[in-house]
Amino acid sequence: MSTTRPYPPPGDRGPEADGAASAGPPRPSGQVRRLHLVGVSGAVPRSRDFTRQALYDWGWLPAATADHRAAAEDVLLVVSELVTNACLHANGPDELRVAFAGKVLRLEVVDLGSGTPTPRNPHRAGRPGGHGMFIVERLCLDWGVVRNEGGNGKTVWAELAAPA
């Protein structure tokens, strides 16, 4: 996991991907959905519903197997954690982007916050709070942060493998 390098474009990658960075600005390819969240109440459930609909449209749901169901649930959990993190620590999310290409689904949450999310280390499972980015790190192929041009805000991205 790298929290500051640009993310690679999605493609025909699976869990074995090495996560090497690509040159140039990040540009999702394939299918992309955008949800504007500026000033929206209920950003987390709205983001989950939006992502769930994309998963239906892209054939991830209804799940054919337990593994497919688990993959879809992981995506929804990561969306919840990223949007919640933006709500709690970055004055709210501006936009959610969900992109699907090849074997990779990428989630991006744009906000105007200046902080950099990091998993709490050491992770203490019995304590309340501080689990969001730990969960993201555990469930995703890779994740990171890219500062927005002009220095205001950032995009927190995470990539998950499509079900086999």
Rank of each mutant, 00 (worst) to 15 (best):
M1E: 06
R5E: 13
R5H: 13
Y7G: 15
P8R: 11
P9R: 15
P10V: 12
D12T: 09
A17G: 13
S22P: 07
A23D: 10
G24P: 02
P25V: 12
P26H: 12
P26T: 08
R27T: 13
P28A: 05
S29N: 13
R34V: 13
L37Y: 07
G42Q: 03
G42C: 02
A43V: 15
R46T: 14
D49T: 14
D49P: 04
A54L: 13
A54Q: 08
A54S: 12
L55N: 04
Y56V: 13
W60H: 08
W60T: 05
A64L: 14
A71E: 05
A71Y: 09
E73W: 06
L77Y: 07
E81K: 00
V83K: 00
C87P: 04
C87L: 12
L88A: 12
H89A: 05
H89S: 06
N91P: 03
G92C: 02
E95P: 09
L96M: 02
R97A: 13
V98N: 03
G102Q: 05
V104K: 00
L105G: 04
V109N: 01
D111Q: 00
S114I: 10
P117I: 01
R120Y: 07
N121A: 11
N121K: 11
N121V: 11
P122H: 04
R124M: 07
G126L: 13
P128G: 08
H131Q: 09
H131N: 10
F134D: 15
I135S: 15
V136Y: 09
V136Q: 02
R138L: 15
L141F: 07
W143E: 04
V145R: 08
V145A: 03
V145Q: 10
R147S: 08
R147T: 11
N152W: 09
W157E: 02
W157P: 09
A158S: 15
L160F: 00
A161K: 02
